[in-house]
């Protein structure tokens, strides 16, 4: 009886310790907007707060650049096949991660047919180069 109990318990313990989903979940289809944020020397900047405002179609999205200086977010394209993106890049950690960088705010119009096709996904690639700022020019807001 004890041996039979162990036969059932041990596999259960193994399965419960695995954090891996037992089914493949495909990547979302997108479209996506991806970006690379670097300084004027081309060095990636980590932990830049990126706020994406797609206007009336959805709420704001906040993401952060990775250790490679990259970010990715789902794009919100209107039924007409275009989107106006208000994007703000803000250095929120002061002198950390390469120094204090200026805040950048841009409005970008994206057209769906101009997106890059990557397999099943449409990707819009953005590239930003930030310059160092003085503390008085760019006080972190958050």
């Amino acid at each position: 009886m004890k041996k039979r109990g162990l036969i059932f318990i041990i596999p259960a313990l193994v399965l419960s310790s695995c954090a891996v989903d037992m089914g493949i979940i495909e990547d979302k289809i997108g479209p996506y907007v991806t970006g690379k944020v670097s300084d004027t020397d081309g060095n990636p900047i980590e932990h830049i707060q990126v706020t994406l405002d797609w206007g009336k179609y959805t709420n704001e999205t906040v993401v952060f650049t990775s250790s490679e200086g990259q970010f990715k977010s789902e794009a919100v394209i209107s039924p007409e096949g275009q989107a106006t993106l208000n994007i703000v890049l803000e250095d929120i950690d002061g002198e950390k991660n390469g120094g204090l960088f200026e805040t950048v705010s841009e409005t970008i119009v994206l057209y769906e047919d101009e997106g890059k096709n990557s397999g099943e996904q449409i990707i819009f690639e953005l590239d930003f180069h930030l310059t160092h700022a003085t503390a008085s020019e760019n006080t972190p807001q958050s």
């Binding site: 704001e60 906040v62 993401v63």
Partner: peptide, 15 residues
């Protein structure tokens, strides 16, 4: 290999 990402405003991440 070492990579870092940050959670978004929904608390989610993907690496």
């Amino acid at each position: 290999l070492t990579l870092s990402e940050y959670t978004d405003n929904n608390g989610t991440y993907s690496i």
